[in-house]
Amino acid sequence: MDKFKKVDGVAAPLPILNVDTDMIIPKQFLKTIKRTGLGKNLFDEMRFTKEGAEIPDFVLNKPQYRNAEILVAGDNFGCGSSREHAPWAIADFGIKVIISTSFADIFYNNCFKNGILPIKLSQSDVDKLMDDAERGANATVSVDLEAQEIKGPDGGTISFDIDPFRKHCLLEGLDDVGLTLQKEEKITSFEKTRASEQPWL
């Protein structure tokens, strides 16, 4: 995984509650056996008509937001299925940061595995950033993971919380499996004890 760098980019507003994974990437795109190339289908049924034409009103189709790197969204973002295709599509589109008041658990986890930073903020902070994002291409927001700070176009600063281990892995682009395999001895000894205590497993 690439290291997560500071993001200075356009923030797109998506003021919808409960954006679910079926909206983010509908099931017809889950038939792939690859991780790549899903960005063109991100929010497919909201972005395109059945015939495949762009729906001009949808935020990511508007000229000023086509290159958005930050998404500001309503509460409970990413609810629904465990499909990692959702963060794959988001990352492939070029979005690196998602800001909301809350995220569904599995989606939140999945983001970190794909170099995406999900940021939980209070309602008033999200409202403020939503306002900023409504300003279109002029609304560049800067997100500094190292400092745990977001700077809006007016220069105001919002700080955010993040689990230190997740922060470390994102910043360093670490591979979880590799890290865990360093604990091989602990896993093996756990398995031995378990096999003697609960032989039916």
Binding site: S82, E84, K113, T180, L181, E191
Partner: peptide, 15 residues
């Protein structure tokens, strides 16, 4: 439920 990266993690490490 877990995501696909975690599926890989469990396959490889059982944790």
């Amino acid at each position: 439920g877990i995501g696909t990266s975690e599926v890989e993690h469990v396959l490889a490490t059982q944790t």
